[in-house]
């Protein structure tokens, strides 16, 4: 390739700036979580773990954290069970309304969360489900179904059909074929999408905002704290969340990548 032209150099410059732009705020969050000062300003005032201690002794925050973990776990489990069944049916059968169904489950992913939240709130009020963490779990599981279905279907589309036929020819029942051929092939996409669901549910605000009652999740707790003002405690809990998300993301991406083509 020839030397880069001025406009290509410009594009490289912009790209590097954008990458910096994407990470600088996260770095600032982490740095200030260890900064020994009540305000987030330079020059840095020295190293402290005080904000982590404050976060670990803040009972409301810990309660919100455990609520979030519970909600994300249940929502993920529901999403995976329903989503995998849906993906298998969508992959295997042709039926009227198939496209419509697929579009419907993808809708909450491209629609601003607030609309889905309001729709569910209206519905729950009509049928008398009170605002609660249970309502949040059902809401998340429903809104995240599209994640599981699209990931698992993408993997199923690559599955070698002849393996399924061979299994059937050898006398395996459809349950056996599922357990011994299909499931091993889609297992990594199930784990990967489960991790994505978990992360998304753990972080979700708009749907949770409308469906939750007195018990709140961590993002809602942080959100309401932020409206009153900033404490560096948020930087500490933020840093922990960032660290955990990085691990989960890397894990899920590794699982979703196809290492061996069948």
């Amino acid at each position: 390739m020839n030397a880069l032209r001025w406009w290509q150099k410009g594009m490289v410059g912009v790209s590097l700036a954008v990458l910096a732009f994407l990470y600088l705020p996260i770095v600032i969050l982490v740095v200030f979580s260890f900064n020994d000062s009540k305000v987030t300003s330079f020059p840095l005032a020295g190293f402290t773990l005080h904000w982590y201690e404050a976060f670990l002794s803040n009972e409301q925050m810990l309660r919100a954290l455990s609520n979030s973990l519970v909600v994300a776990s249940f929502a993920t489990a529901l999403s995976v069970v329903i989503g995998v069944a849906a993906a298998l049916a969508l992959d295997r059968y042709e039926f009227p309304g198939k496209r419509l169904f697929q579009n419907a489950i993808l809708l909450p992913l491209s629609l601003p969360g607030i609309v889905t939240g309001i729709a569910m709130l209206n519905f729950y009020k009509q049928i008398g489900i009170p605002q609660s963490l249970t309502a949040v779990v059902i809401g998340h599981a429903t809104a995240l179904l599209g994640v599981v279905v699209s990931q698992v279907m993408a993997r199923l589309a690559k599955l070698n059909r002849r393996q399924l036929e061979a299994s059937a020819d050898l006398g395996a029942t459809s349950v056996e074929t599922f357990r011994r051929v299909t499931l091993p092939a889609i297992r990594s996409s199930i784990f990967g999408s489960a991790l994505l669901c978990f992360t998304l549910s753990f972080d979700e605000i708009p749907v949770t905002y409308f469906l939750t009652g007195r018990e709140v999740t961590l993002p809602i707790y942080i959100y309401s704290t932020l409206r009153r003002g900033i404490t560096p405690e948020i930087n500490a809990v933020g840093t922990v969340i960032v660290a955990v998300s990085f691990v989960l993301i890397i894990l899920s991406v590794t699982l979703l990548r196809d290492r061996r083509e069948s």
Partner: peptide, 16 residues
């Protein structure tokens, strides 16, 4: 990756 790192925190960092 930043897409999956808490949306709320990424908005909040601009406040600080």
């Amino acid at each position: 990756v930043p897409l999956w790192v808490s949306y709320l925190l990424r908005a909040y960092t601009w406040k600080i």
